[in-house]
Amino acid sequence: MRHVLVTGAGSGIGREVALTFALAGDALTLADLHADPLEQTASLARSAGAASCDTVTIDLRRDDAHETLVAAAWATAPVDVLVSSAGVYPATPFLDLDATTWDLVLDVNTRAPVLLTVALARRAVAAGRGASVVNISSGAALRARPGAAPYSTSKAALEAATRASALELGRHGIRVNAVAPGFVTVDSSVNPVTDEYADAVGDNPLGRRGSPADIARAVAWIAGDDAGWITGEVLRVDGGSSTGAWNLPLHWSASTDVDRPAT
Rank of each mutant, 00 (worst) to 15 (best):
L5M: 09
A9L: 04
S11G: 00
R15W: 07
R15M: 14
R15C: 14
E16P: 03
A22F: 03
A27C: 09
D32S: 15
D32G: 12
Q40I: 09
T41Y: 07
T41I: 11
A45V: 14
G49K: 10
D54N: 12
D54G: 15
D54C: 06
R61H: 02
H66R: 13
E67R: 14
E67I: 12
E67Y: 03
T68W: 02
V70K: 10
T76H: 14
P78V: 06
P78N: 07
V79N: 08
V79S: 11
V83M: 09
P90S: 14
A91I: 13
N109T: 10
V114K: 02
L115E: 14
A119F: 03
R122W: 04
R123C: 09
V125R: 15
A126C: 04
G128A: 13
A131L: 06
V133F: 05
L142Q: 15
L142Y: 08
R143M: 08
P146Y: 02
T153K: 07
S154W: 06
A157P: 06
A160S: 15
T162C: 12
R163I: 02
R163L: 08
A166Q: 10
G170H: 07
R171N: 09
H172C: 11
V179Y: 06
V179P: 07
A180E: 01
P181V: 06
P181W: 05
P181R: 11
G182V: 04
V190H: 08
N191K: 07
V193P: 01
D195G: 01
A198I: 10
A198V: 05
V201L: 06
G202Y: 05
L206N: 10
R209N: 14
S211E: 12
P212T: 09
A213I: 05
R217P: 02
A223Y: 01
A223M: 05
G224T: 05
D225Y: 03
D226H: 04
D226Q: 12
D226I: 00
E233G: 10
V234W: 01
R236A: 11
S241P: 00
S242E: 09
N247D: 03
N247Q: 00
L248N: 00
L248P: 03
L250Y: 02
H251S: 03
A254H: 02
S255L: 08
D259S: 13
R260K: 04
